[in-house]
Amino acid sequence: MSTDRPTSPDRQDTLEVHVRSLGVGRSLVVADGDVDLRTAPQLAGVLQPLLLTGGHRVLMDLSGVTFLDSTGLTCLITAYRTARRTGAHLALIAPSERVRHMLALTGTDQVLHSYPSLDTVPEEPELPDPGHTA
């Protein structure tokens, strides 16, 4: 399995990010498209303010992410570190096959909690393993 970007002559690097409130202190961030050098700052600009609120729970739907490069991966790791520092919680929802592959390849899947769907996320967040750092 390759993590190479799909090629198409009319393909453009795009990322759409939407935030939806799931109640007090819970947000769903939905990302669709490529998370790469050009678009990762857009995703970080949405995630970081949400994670700066201690105790806030951010669920990130990555089912529509078609490409994740090292910059995108760094964005996720930075979000994880911000959450740990502030007491917020970050979990990934339904990462696409490409994203799952990149997370597994780098070992990041051992640090970031991931759930197959929004319905499978427990009401109480799982506590991070203090022995794991990213």
Rank of each mutant, 00 (worst) to 15 (best):
M1K: 08
S2M: 08
T3K: 11
D4H: 06
R5L: 14
P9H: 06
P9V: 12
R11A: 15
T14C: 13
L15C: 11
V17T: 15
H18D: 13
V19G: 09
R20G: 10
G23L: 07
G23S: 14
V24N: 11
G25A: 15
R26N: 07
L28Q: 07
G33V: 04
D34A: 11
D36Q: 06
R38H: 07
A40L: 10
P41I: 03
P41F: 07
Q42G: 11
L43M: 08
G45K: 11
G45P: 06
V46Q: 06
L47K: 02
P49A: 13
L50Q: 04
L51Q: 02
G55V: 09
D61P: 03
L62I: 05
G64Y: 08
T66A: 14
L68H: 03
L68G: 00
D69I: 03
D69Q: 13
T71V: 09
L73K: 05
L76Q: 06
Y80H: 07
A83S: 09
R84P: 01
G87C: 12
A88L: 03
A88D: 00
L90N: 00
L90I: 14
S96H: 04
R98F: 00
R98N: 12
R98P: 03
V99N: 01
L105K: 08
T108L: 13
D109A: 13
D109E: 10
L112R: 00
H113L: 06
H113S: 09
S114Q: 15
L118P: 03
L118E: 12
D119K: 11
P122V: 15
E124C: 07
E124K: 14
P125W: 04
E126N: 13
P128E: 07
P130R: 12
G131Q: 13
H132D: 12
H132K: 10
H132L: 15
A134K: 03
